[in-house]
Design a binder for these strands. Structure first.
Length: 982
DNA sequence: GAGACTTCCTAA
DNA sequence: TCAGTTAGGAAGTCTC
């Protein structure tokens, strides 16, 4: 039996209760802040009774335990379902592929090998069968290739000479090649996607023996080389020569990311036993020829998801006081693990690997070790035994994995770091950097775990959700409405060095930190949503976390281009800083509107513009002269965009991007329809994830064409899109204001009071919501008729009342039905910004509610005055005053509060100081007169521990006053000033 | 002390 | 070798 201990519960306050009793409640607050307890002082030494008290999490463990089927030995549940007997002659193998990589090796004898290659690139697909067996599949015979336009005098007879010349040059550049670089050349008829080409022209498809030779081949063409019989050959750009090899394979074989593949009986060969040598730890290892892999499109029955095993883990290490743990010194003392089958609600493995004895925990398999080396080795074996498909945790890429690897290294454990599915492949942490305009720069680490997906929940949160803080604590409070029970790192060592009970306490914390990432992933349905994104865009699952937005569009573009014999050039990016004009923002008629304001929106504006006007690389013509040269006639064959760019009409050639967008939007419509009919919650989740992925994908096509630091920028597309958009908004405004007039028999003259990019806000003059809705619907229909299909203006909602503060800043009650408003909506103002302190957002939010919902401006004023009084009397809890900002760069020209603080913190303890990309929290403390804000910023914990006085004047004058004035002024006029003078 | 410039974050 | 877009408010610092 699993060791059962009756939960030893000492009654005590929960952490939240303790916090609540110590915090001050000067601010009656909106929902979000109620979930967040006030900042509490962290104890840094001396264990108290409370430290031995078990947490309420034990109740959760007990619940999980009660659902567990008892087993003799907890390790018995680790292994996967046994592999059924397979007869390769009779049984097909069907699995969901989740990861793919490639390597170079000798091609086995039984594989068809027409070029008699020795060593060649081999693809390796990893996956899981519906029965839950893990699979590694070696795919042979697929050669990487690039295209170049055939040189003018190229003739098929020159092929051997051409290959020899390339080989001579490539092997001289790269020595260690075992065999020649170029395997074969095909002469094919294709055309470039980049600019309209009326005819296909000859291209050379050059097959490379090793995938890794692609950059060398590309470079060779760029630099030029001599071909006997042809002369000097220099070609730039080459085509399709910058795509990752596994993706190339998937595109050509029509395999979508995370989709199902089938290996027919008789077509594959099993490894192990008397067969080929096994190289992986997967249950089933097979070889197959590339053309024999059958790809199933992820639709209908093939939308299902295999019973993937998800391991969530967390480690604790024993640090020294005030110093961040250092793997060369500080031991790993506990590792907690939870293993769940995707789609099931309960982890079937819950265990802790602990250093030194530890009291039992209900429903938890405890493994205690005397030596750290034993602990680490046992955990490594546990990974192989459980054989997880997905490994999750919080900051596992940034901390847990690197720490474990460094620690194993420090202890000279030679057999620890083999955590992937390929035998002999050592797991290492490699520094990586990711930087983009949207997400800034961030350093992280890449961990190779061949065949196992990694989902670092921290990274997922940072990518997908804009939050004020990304600590596990803050994220759980936000999404799960519950707190992680925080153990300050300085007491971890004390707990470890205490007794069985204190170590038990620590283990419970550790377990909960392993459980929470799983809860988050489940709640946000990350696995399903990411899989659907991989399926929709066709990229391998792990690209979604390790790469940017562009690869997803590239994958779709390549797939569509291939169908039409179009080739994609590998442009050298020269990082131009040239910008193009974006969307229009209509000058707002600022003010407080106590009449309904109807909002009309263009649905999927940019995608619909690209579809309506056939904007694409393949329909683009550089200039009029070129168009005339091709005998094209304006209007009949092409149109000139408001940006003065030329694109063909769809009647002459339908663009690829419009086709991709139509497919995406049609697929979304299908998914949404299916969703309406579906009742099974699991299938519903899949469909919902799909429609979301389809929408996001459609919207990112425009951004891709405008990405000047990108794979295939064509600003003619992006700037024409925005130009059309600007024209449309202007026209919409004009249309509405001209049609809805007293002169035309309407009650009032309509007025467009604001509009941004794809929307206009209309005051029809009517005083009730129902009439505004009716007119809004009528206007949307009328305007839509003025545009080309599929452009569509939609009536979406009414704001009433509506407070229009400035461009991109407004608030109002949001109505979609005339009976009752749906919610209060705020855009751009302090309530939705992460860089204002919580005091400001809650005060503004509460004032807005009083003004908009209660229509009680006086109440709002009194409330604001009350808060100001509390602030000046120091009655506001510290947590309300924390300001946070992202540390966006390592060098700043101007001094910045958050950066100056980060630097000071680095001097105190480099390990725990904020890193590039992290959000830095700070409080403005009292300083000498005239001190700049950056001199007065301090770490909230430091302020609390050292009882440093707060600069309340700063919070009043620099944080509260202006936002308050901005919302009160449109209502009270200059009277608003009196608010602050008392 | 005004205004240019830097930085962050949001709207769409 | 990788990295989606522009518009725009607001706060703070720098410069003269």
């Amino acid at each position: 039996m699993v060791s059962i201990t009756p939960a030893k519960r000492k009654e005590g306050l929960t952490a939240a209760e303790v916090e609540a009793s110590t915090g001050m409640t000067a601010v009656p607050t909106a929902t979000e802040s109620q979930r967040r307890p006030p900042l509490k002082k962290q104890r840094t030494s001396n264990l108290t009774d409370q430290d031995a008290a078990p947490s309420s999490f034990v109740e959760e463990l007990e619940r999980l335990h009660q659902q567990t089927i008892p087993v003799e030995n907890p390790k018995d549940v680790w292994a996967r379902a046994p592999l059924p007997k397979i007869d390769p002659a009779k049984d097909s193998i069907v699995f969901q592929q989740i990861d793919i990589d490639d390597y170079a090796d000798q091609i086995p004898d039984f594989i068809d090998n027409p070029y008699h290659l020795g060593e060649a690139s081999i693809l390796r697909m990893y996956g899981v069968t519906m029965e839950g067996n893990s699979v590694v599949c070696h795919v042979h015979g697929f050669q990487n290739y690039i295209y170049v336009p055939a040189p003018k005098d190229y003739r098929p007879e020159l092929q051997d000479s051409f290959i020899r010349a390339m080989n001579a040059n490539i092997t001289t550049q790269r020595k260690n090649q075992n065999g020649s670089a170029v395997v074969d050349i095909d002469l094919v008829m294709k055309s470039s996607i980049f600019g309209y080409q009326p005819h296909k022209v000859p291209f050379l498809r050059i097959y490379l023996r090793l995938a890794a030779l692609m950059p060398a081949a590309k470079r060779l063409f760029k630099e030029g080389f001599h071909v006997p019989g042809l002369g000097r050959v220099a070609i730039d750009p080459t085509f399709e020569s910058n795509i990752p090899f596994p993706l190339r394979f998937m595109i050509d074989m029509k395999i979508q990311g995370a989709s199902w593949v089938e290996l027919k009986a008789g077509k594959y060969r099993m490894r192990g036993g008397s067969g080929e040598r096994r190289t992986s730890t997967a249950q089933l290892e097979v070889d197959i020829y590339c053309d024999d892999v059958i790809a199933h499109q992820p639709e209908g029955d093939w939308s299902k998801i295999a019973p993937l095993r998800i391991l969530s883990f967390d480690i604790e290490c024993s640090g020294r006081k005030g110093v961040f743990p250092d793997a060369s010194i500080d031991p790993v003392i506990q590792i907690a693990n939870m293993v769940t089958v995707q789609g099931e609600s309960r982890p079937f493995v819950r265990n802790v690997f602990a250093l030194k004895q530890c009291a039992n925990i209900v429903g938890t398999h405890l493994m205690c070790f005397d030596k750290e080396e034993q602990l680490l080795q046992a955990w490594s074996k546990f990974i192989s035994a459980v054989d997880p498909d997905i490994i999750i945790g919080y900051n596992i890429n940034g901390f847990d994995f690197p720490y474990l690897l460094d620690r194993a290294d420090a202890l000279h454990l030679n057999d620890f770091a083999f955590l992937g599915r390929i035998m002999g492949n050592e797991t290492k942490a490699k520094d990586t950097q990711f930087s983009s305009k949207a997400h800034g720069t961030r350093n992280s680490k890449a961990i190779n775990l061949e065949g196992r997906l990694q989902m670092d929940v921290l990274q997922i949160m940072q990518r997908d959700h804009k939050l004020r803080s990304y600590t596990l604590n803050a994220v759980c409070a936000h999404f799960l409405g519950e707190q992680k029970e925080d153990v300050h790192h300085s007491i971890i060592s004390d707990l470890q060095n205490g007794n069985d009970e204190t170590r038990r306490r620590l283990a419970i914390y550790c377990l909960k930190d392993a459980y929470l990432p799983q809860r988050l992933i489940d709640k946000l349905m990350c696995v399903i949503n990411y899989m659907e994104m991989a399926r929709v865009t066709g990229v391998p699952f792990n690209y979604l976390l390790t790469r940017g937005q562009q690869i997803k569009v590239v994958s779709q573009l390549y797939r569509k281009a291939k169908e039409e014999d179009l080739l994609i050039p590998a442009l050298e990016i020269e990082g131009t800083d040239e910008q193009y004009e974006g969307a229009i923002v209509i000058e707002p008629e600022k003010g407080f509107y106590e009449v309904p304001i109807a909002t009309l929106d263009f649905t999927s504006l940019y995608p619909s513009i690209m579809m309506a006007h056939n904007l694409c690389y393949s329909t683009y013509v550089k200039d009029l002269k070129t168009a005339q040269g091709m005998g094209l006639v304006k209007d009949k064959d092409f149109k000139i965009t408001p940006n003065n760019d030329i694109f063909l009409n769809a009647s002459l050639r339908k663009g690829l991007l419009p086709t991709i967008l139509e497919d995406l939007l049609a697929a979304r419509k299908r998914a949404k329809n299916d969703l309406k009919k579906e009742t099974d919650p699991f299938k519903r989740a899949v469909l919902d994830g799909r429609q979301l992925a389809l929408k996001v994908s459609a919207n990112s096509v425009y951004g891709f064409t405008g990405a000047t630091i990108g794979k295939l920028p064509l600003l003619a597309i992006s700037s024409s899109v925005t130009a059309y958009g600007r024209e449309m908004i202007e026209k919409t405004k004009q249309c509405v204001q001209e049609k809805f007039t007293v002169a035309n028999g309407y009650e009032h003259d309509a007025q467009v009071v604001y509009g941004d990019t794809d929307s206009v806000m209309v005051k029809f003059g009517v005083s009730d919501v129902a009439s505004a809705m009716k007119l809004g619907t009528e206007a949307a229909k009328y305007v839509t008729e003025q545009f080309i299909r599929p452009i569509n203006l939609d009536f979406e909602k009414v704001y009433f009342p509506y407070l229009l503060i400035n461009k991109k800043r407004y608030a109002g009650l949001y109505w979609t039905k005339p009976e009752k408003h749906d919610k209060m909506d705020a855009k751009g103002i302090e309530t939705v910004r992460r860089d204002s302190c919580r005091l400001v957002s809650t005060v503004i939010e509460t004032c807005l509610r009083k003004i908009l919902e209660d229509r009680d401006t006086k109440g709002a004023e009194d409330y604001a005055k009350g808060v100001i009084a509390d602030l000046l009397q120091n009655k506001i809890d510290l947590s309300q005053l924390v300001i946070s900002k992202a540390l966006g760069r390592s060098e700043y020209t101007a001094k910045q509060a958050h950066n100056e603080l980060a630097e000071r913190m680095r001097k105190r303890d480099a390990g725990s100081a904020p890193a590039l990309g992290d959000r830095v929290s700070y409080i403005i403390i009292k300083g000498h007169k005239d001190a700049a804000a950056y001199e007065k910023a301090e770490d909230p914990i430091f302020v609390l521990d050292n009882n440093i006085p707060i600069d309340t004047k700063y919070y009043l004058e620099n944080q509260l006053s202006k936002p308050l004035m901005r919302i009160f002024e449109p209502i009270l006029g200059t009277k608003a000033n009196s608010l602050l003078c008392e």
